[in-house]
């Protein structure tokens, strides 16, 4: 019973992070029709930025802020410099480009920071909280994780639903040509979208890293889970991404707890395949199957 509860709590925390990462993928997919697999190494690079700052003796929070800020800049620069030239071209070129970036960032981090595991600090306890004599698997950092993701989502929701800039961003994503005719600077909105997505990705990276080990490949599996979560919720839906992330976090936590942590990625693959076969439009799609 206690294991069940703890597995669920662990899944919930992880699910929040996957939800954030899935959201980052969906934001970019909606606006540029690219699944930005390079989101994983982008987040990794910003985590290393934080690590450098912490190693230099500065506070965790300064490092945290610097990582998010570098995520913002990295996302904007990558969209503007590398992705922009292939937008509107063959889809496959944009995908190959993000994979090239994947390799570049990975290798760059390995050259600069080395390929070994390093421990990353957490600002709150990473031990389970005691409730009535038993320790439950909800840690201080876990609570922070959940709150951080919730706050981020709330802010994004406000931005998209309540502000003019959010309206412009949505219009650019849904129909760039009409948006241009209405005076929206679509290019800027895409840059901003990539920048925001990259911040959310960085946040996920920091949350995965907290109290744990990082190395250049530590986010690679997270991008897989983020992608599966996004497909689970329907690639176009930010709301779906969040729900998909939570469901996937729970499911994978149970696989890890009851079967074996080595098979978590395989479980994600199986879930992905099941979704694609049964409900390719995602769990919330109105029609069961989209055009194949």
């Amino acid at each position: 019973m206690q294991q069940l509860l703890n597995t669920a709590l662990g899944g919930l925390t992880l699910g929040m992070v996957y939800a954030a990462f899935a959201l980052a993928l969906v934001l970019i997919w909606r606006s540029t029709r690219v699944v930005n697999f390079a989101q994983a190494p982008m987040a990794m690079v910003t985590t290393f930025v934080a690590l450098v700052i912490v190693d230099a003796g500065h506070s965790y929070w300064l490092a945290f802020a610097a990582a998010l800020a570098s995520g913002l800049v990295l996302g904007a620069v990558i969209e503007r410099v590398v992705v922009r030239p292939v937008e509107g071209g063959p889809e496959i070129n944009a995908v190959i480009l993000t994979l090239g970036l994947f390799i570049v960032l990975h290798a760059l981090a390995a050259v600069i920071f080395g390929n070994r595991y390093r421990s990353f600090p957490a600002p709150f306890g990473v031990r389970g909280i005691e409730v009535g004599g038993t320790t439950i698997a909800l840690t201080g950092f876990g609570i922070f994780t959940i709150l951080a993701v919730l706050v981020t989502m709330g802010l994004l929701l406000l931005l998209f639903q309540r502000t003019d800039i959010g309206l412009r961003m949505r219009a650019s994503a849904f129909n760039p040509e009409v948006a241009r005719l209405l005076g929206v600077r679509v290019g800027r909105m895409l840059t901003l979208g990539w920048a925001l997505a990259s911040v959310v990705g960085s946040l996920a990276g920091l949350l995965i890293a907290g109290g744990s080990l990082v190395h250049p490949g530590y986010m690679d599996s997270v991008v897989v889970y983020g992608f599966v979560a996004a497909v689970l919720g329907g690639l176009d839906s930010p709301f779906g991404a969040v729900v998909g992330g939570l469901l996937l976090g729970l499911a994978l936590s149970f696989v890890s707890g009851y079967v074996g942590s080595q098979l978590v990625a395989l479980a994600a693959l199986v879930i992905l395949m099941l979704v694609l076969v049964l409900r390719p439009g995602g769990l919330f799609a109105q029609t069961a199957a989209r055009r194949v």
Partner: peptide, 20 residues
């Protein structure tokens, strides 16, 4: 499961395979 569909699904599924 994945190649049948148009879109990024095969890329994602094969990435999952590579990690799994």
């Amino acid at each position: 499961a994945a190649a049948r569909l148009h879109g990024p699904y095969l890329a994602g599924a094969t990435l999952a395979l590579a990690v799994a």
